[in-house]
């Protein structure tokens, strides 16, 4: 992710006036470039080994098929053709898309509220709230899912017990109609604090003068939030959205833990990531699994890119 620059900042060298001393400048650029590449090497190496090579290997694997009877053969795009037809993969993609459409706005809305509240200066014990909301992020997803799973449990779970105590018939939170919402709740609980920090950090860099100017113009707190804070938050919100889009498509830990509590609700293909995992490790279908992973990666990239483009377009329109 590029660091978003504040609106109105100079937009790079391209628009700068022509240089006054072209000759010496060109020389300097040349030798700087050489050294620059040298300094880049460690990163480039790590990038190639850690990111490009595994991606290429996964892509390579996806063009083969290994069978228990018949061994390994090159199959071209067969795995991709199969994946595009695969109802289980499609159902999983729709499921995470639905999750994305509902959970992400909800979570970012809550994070925004929390960030604005803490930044408003009207809150007592603001640091306490900040750390309190952030703490769930420090809990590993596996532990968080287990913990919530116990609370959700239909027979002895806390929710059911409270419901029984009040004489209210609580729904089965681990049943098929509630499971996605229950997982959404866990994810929201885990990541509200994280997103709040991103937004809060963006709020802290707004210069005081803007608020002072607004106050002189007679703006109240709400007007300040609406006209100064929200526009300034746009790049940070965009960043958080892109992270959340990626997170949603890669949903794995939470449903995977819930599976042991409700095996008939969370199937092996509940999310695309779980599907890829089960294909590889229960079915030994590493090649098909690689194709599924590549498709999932592409879908994620496309959606994240779309969010980014639409977000920055609005930014330009401002």
């Amino acid at each position: 992710m590029r660091t978003p620059s504040p609106p109105g900042a100079p937009r790079g060298e391209g628009s700068a006036p022509p240089s006054r001393r072209p000759t010496s400048r060109r020389l300097a650029t040349g030798s700087q470039g050489r050294y620059g590449y040298l300094f880049l090497t460690p990163f480039v190496l790590a990038f190639l080994v850690g990111i490009v090579a595994p991606l290429l290997y996964a892509a390579y694997l996806s063009f083969f098929q290994e069978r228990m009877v018949g061994g390994t053969t090159f199959v071209g795009f067969d795995n991709y053709a199969r994946a595009l037809e695969d109802q289980l993969l499609r159902a999983g993609l729709w499921r995470v898309a639905l999750f994305l459409a509902i959970q992400v706005p909800l979570m970012l809305g809550l994070a925004l509220l929390a960030a604005l509240a803490i930044d408003s200066g009207l809150l007592r014990w603001a640091p306490l709230f900040r750390i309190g909301i952030f703490i769930p992020y420090a809990v590993p997803a596996v532990v968080a899912s287990l913990m919530w799973g116990y609370l959700y449990g239909d027979r002895f779970g806390l929710v059911r017990q409270i419901g029984d105590g009040l004489g209210v018939d609580t729904p089965n939170l681990l049943g098929s109609s509630w499971m996605l919402a229950s997982i959404g709740n866990v994810v929201t609980w885990e990541f509200v604090g994280y997103n709040m920090l991103i937004l809060y950090a963006a709020l802290r860099v707004i210069p005081e003068e803007l608020y002072e100017a607004a106050a002189i113009d007679g703006a109240g707190e709400f007007r300040k939030a609406w006209s100064i804070k929200l526009p300034a938050l746009r790049p940070a919100l965009l960043l958080a959205s892109v992270f959340s889009v990626i997170g949603s498509f890669q949903l794995f830990n939470e449903p995977n833990i819930m599976q042991s509590l409700a095996p008939n609700v969370v199937t092996t293909s509940y999310t695309p990531n779980m599907y890829a995992y089960n294909l590889a490790f229960n079915g030994q279908q590493f090649n098909y699994s690689a194709a599924v992973a590549v498709i999932l990666g592409l879908v994620t990239a496309v959606v994240a890119f779309a969010v980014q483009v639409s977000g920055s377009r609005k930014e330009h329109a401002q």
Binding site: Y150, G153, D154, R155, F156, G157, S260, L261, A262, P263, N264
Partner: peptide
Amino acid sequence: APGWTNEWWQA
């Protein structure tokens, strides 16, 4: 109830 879960052992 799925087996080996906390709830199942409680039951």
